[in-house]
């Protein structure tokens, strides 16, 4: 059948539901094994973080769309958490294959990594459903990107870091959703990463310092 805008949206939702229908709201046995392999087990912090962010997300969602729609916020969050655990597992498998290690203690205890990954999963869910609701809401009820960054108090540059890996390991994302994440990437590169408190500036400073040290070393050798 011809691919109408409505058909495209329905396909994207169906695809998301198909991916997440059988997924769990809790970490899988495989993820638990990764957690147990860590020098410091991150499990309790991960569960608590998900719970805390869930409370904030549901509150902000209800504030934006009205208390009558609070249950929809809970459903969106539940889907986001399923996708978060699913992608985390795929990322760890991919990294295990690449690096031949099973201990990801530092990564799995990194708060920014988890917030970024959960934000990306939630953004996929929110973007999937956003086209089925009104597109002409006032700014106070606009839940499209970068709304999720404000909810999770996350820097755009940190969110940017997970996008490519997310697309790489979640092979069931629709073309529409990949395009959406790519648009988020572009917005971050073009403007959101360049705000005054962005971590990008620290990285540029570090990079310059390394370059200066290397130049000094080179001239000393000469």
């Amino acid at each position: 059948p011809p691919q109408t805008p409505v058909r495209t949206v329905m396909n994207t939702i169906q695809q998301l539901i198909m991916i997440l229908n059988t997924a769990s709201d809790q970490p899988s046995e495989t993820l638990i094994t990764y957690f147990n392999n860590c020098t410091v087990n991150p499990k309790e912090n991960i569960l608590k973080r998900v719970q805390d962010i869930g409370c904030i997300f549901k509150e902000k969602f209800a504030q934006a769309v009205g208390q009558g729609c609070a249950e929809i916020g809970s459903q969106r969050f539940r889907l986001g958490v399923r996708l978060y655990y699913r992608v985390m597992e795929s990322m760890l498998k991919s990294e295990e294959e690449r690096l031949a290690i099973q201990n990801f203690s530092k990564l799995l205890n990194d708060n920014t990594f988890h917030k970024s990954l959960l934000a990306c999963a939630l953004e996929v869910v929110m973007a999937t459903y956003s086209r089925t609701t009104s597109q002409h809401l006032d700014p106070g009820t606009d839940l499209s990107f970068p709304w999720i960054l404000n909810v999770l108090n996350l820097k755009a540059f940190d969110f940017y870091k997970v996008i490519e890996s997310f697309i790489k390991v979640e092979t069931n994302l629709t073309r529409e959703m990949i395009k959406h994440l790519e648009r988020c990437e572009h917005r971050i590169m073009e403007s959101l990463a360049w705000v005054s408190d962005s971590p990008l500036f620290d990285l540029i400073k570090q990079s310059k310092a390394r370059e200066a040290a290397a130049n000094l070393h080179e001239s000393t050798c000469t």
């Binding site: 990322m91 991919s94 990294e95 690449r98 690096l99 990801f104 530092k106 990564l107 990194d110 920014t112 990594f113 870091k161 997970v162 490519e164 890996s165 697309i167 790489k168 990949i178 395009k179 790519e182």
Partner: peptide
């Protein structure tokens, strides 16, 4: 027609991006 998503050329993984040596 939008171009396909361009993955980075370097073999970089999520661990590298969060500075975990």
């Amino acid at each position: 027609e939008v171009l396909e998503y361009q993955f980075g050329l370097e073999e970089e993984g999520i661990r590298d991006l969060f500075d975990c040596d």
